[in-house]
């Protein structure tokens, strides 16, 4: 059965995922049995009782109470088993333990923003220590999104105006993909995130210095990575085409007309200010909907983004 489980289901990231998969395979077995039973009966009857010439039916029996009771009661018992088992696992999935690492999740049109208890913020990615339960307290700022991590088998809608919570106990180190599962507009399919499960020391190291992969990376390359992972790509294009925000193409070093009519030279300070206080200077014919990245980006990451924008000629 494991080969079928590996085909049907993604890798298991948590103990709950294993529990869920056992339940899942139980229903697969049940479904396969009943489907094969029905198909076998249909094929056999069609072949065995095919009409030869103008032959009448062999019997006109119209009901058999015992048989009808059997094929009502047995399915009822089976579905009640499925209900009870499903309810038991559901309570495990949705009742968080007390001592969990609590992370605030805010979903907004097309990016995930996370905030750790110590105030550190990240966008579209989180690092969690292995073996310690994590509890996500989620809310949305605009429409309904849904926090879905297939390898943890967990999903819950992120509803505006309301807090919903979700928890998981990571047990497999590595990278797990986060999807948005509730349709939320143009960027619904781009609203992906990453959950990195690290060992205890790697997690502490990450908390101080940030991702070691990015520390050694040249600034412009890191900027390109951040352009994607921090969600800049959903509003700023690189090819000059207009989206919610102005395109980066050919911006650096040129005059920019602002909404209040004045024009300003797009130098490093302007780019930095636009990242950290976007409402200060808004390009004309655009709305001031860009969120501030103050506290969301380390100093090195801001420099990297500036270098990246500089390269977009």
């Amino acid at each position: 059965m494991n080969w079928l489980k590996s085909i049907l289901l993604p890798a298991q990231g948590t103990a709950y995922a294993a529990e869920h998969d056992t339940f899942f395979m139980f229903i697969v077995a049940l479904t396969a049995f009943f489907f094969l039973l029905i198909t076998a009966l249909v094929v056999f009857f069609v072949w065995r009782y095919r009409r030869r010439g103008d032959s009448p039916a062999e019997s006109q029996v119209t009901h058999n109470t015992r048989l009808e009771i059997v094929w009502s009661v047995i399915p009822l018992i089976l579905v009640m088993i499925i209900f009870a088992w499903g309810f038991h696992d559901y309570m495990n999935a949705y009742t968080a333990p007390g001592d969990a690492l609590e992370i605030q999740v805010t979903a907004k049109q097309w990016i995930w923003q996370f905030e750790y208890p110590d105030g550190m913020r990240t966008v579209n990615e989180i690092h969690v220590p292995i073996g310690r339960p994590v509890r996500l307290v989620m809310s949305s700022e605009d429409v309904i999104h849904s926090f879905f991590v297939p390898s943890f088998r967990i999903k819950k809608d992120v509803v505006p105006g309301m807090y919903t919570d979700l928890w998981f106990l990571p047990e497999a180190e590595g990278e797990h993909t986060l999807f948005c599962a509730e349709y939320c507009g143009r960027g619904h399919s781009d609203m992906l995130g990453k959950i990195y499960v690290d060992s205890e020391e790697k997690f502490r190291e990450w908390q101080e210095l940030g991702d070691e992969r990015t520390r050694t990376m040249p600034l412009a390359e890191l900027g390109a990575l951040l352009y994607e992972s921090r969600g800049c790509s959903t509003c700023h294009s690189l090819d000059g085409s207009r989206r919610d925000g102005p395109s980066f193409k050919g911006v650096f070093g040129h005059e920019v007309k602002l909404s209040d009519g004045t024009t300003v030279l797009a130098d490093e300070n302007y780019i930095r200010e636009s990242i950290l206080e976007p409402q200060a200077k808004i390009v004309s014919s655009f709305e001031g909907i860009m969120p501030t990245f103050q506290g969301l980006l380390r100093e090195r990451e801001v420099k990297a983004l500036i270098e990246f924008v500089k390269e977009q000629q």
Binding site: T106, S139, E141, D142, V159, P160, G161, M162, Y163, E287, I289
Partner: peptide
């Protein structure tokens, strides 16, 4: 929990 507009930015 009844929804409260606790942290919603005002509609455009």
């Amino acid at each position: 929990a009844t929804p409260r507009p606790a942290n919603l930015k005002p509609p455009p």
